[in-house]
Design a protein around this nucleic acid. Structure first.
Lengths: 144, 144
DNA sequence: TATAATTGTTTTGTATACTAATCAATTTGG
DNA sequence: CCAAATTGATTAGTATACAAAACAATTATA
């Protein structure tokens, strides 16, 4: 049963990324880049380390995503004066609009996904999923 | 609500892969490779195309996974006589044991994940997840 | 039967994901 | 105050994930 849950969670995750990627294609930005762009948009001047805290991803991965976001002029970085190791990140002009536009796309992606699932069911689903995730986090923190 | 479901499904999926990877590290095989190896183990002589049908992955990705499985001597391939484009895939000697050993590891990974979740809840969770996945598949098949 | 279309698979190119190593800037400890 | 440890971030290396092109073998069609 648990195994089945894991497999299906993986499958659903994969499908979501596929779906979003398809819709995002024409905007010339990827799903991962977008997630990061949004965080930067919400918190101008944020640092890479702070993004990591929010996003539960890998610093090497984030470094690459930020580099591509900067290369494509979605964000720019300014060296921090107090600590020269740190760079403060800002969205470029026009990228705020992109964030909004993407919200619409996301709506389009996720609408219909809830079909045949009642609010109550969805709520309970989330409760169970939360517990499951909590257990996963504990398990990962365990020693091997 | 749907958005939250999607994010958490992604998170859980990521955690599962992380967990399995950590446990698989010492066996010198990756999660993806293992999934493929298992299919080959269950159906000796299977072709790449047939694996694709079972696994819902990408043919280019599978090609790489098979190449690495072969490079590490987990599988070997034999050109099919009837159709020379096709290769029949077999697990190498010793790899069956690996599959069994991995089942134990998987058990270790997923035990405890169900803690605090009743059988009934898990069952209902799966039902909702199935519906959700079904909706995702439909959505992906739609035209944009 | 020669050519066109199809098929099974690999290759190419780009973007994650993650570990380990590196690197420069900053703290710390003696 | 200086060497050592720490920190924020990038780089190197390997493995997916996926689109698009390439390729050889096979089948369909004119």
């Amino acid at each position: 049963m648990v195994k089945e849950m894991c497999y299906k969670l993986n499958k659903s995750s994969m499908l979501y990324k596929r779906l979003m990627s398809k819709h995002l294609e024409r905007l010339d930005i990827t799903y991962s880049q977008l997630m990061v762009l949004r965080v930067v948009n919400q918190e101008p001047g944020i640092t890479a380390k702070e993004i990591l805290l929010q996003m539960d991803t890998d610093k090497a991965t984030l470094s690459g995503v930020l580099a591509r976001l900067e290369r494509n002029n979605y964000v720019y970085r300014v060296q921090n004066d107090n600590d020269k190791r740190v760079q403060n990140i800002f969205v470029s002009d026009g990228s705020e609009e992109l964030c909004n536009e993407v919200s619409l796309i996301e709506q389009a992606c996720i609408s219909d996904l809830i079909k045949g699932i009642s609010d109550e069911e969805a709520e309970h689903f989330l409760l169970v999923l939360d517990r499951f995730i909590e257990n996963q986090v504990k398990k990962i923190e365990e020693k091997f």
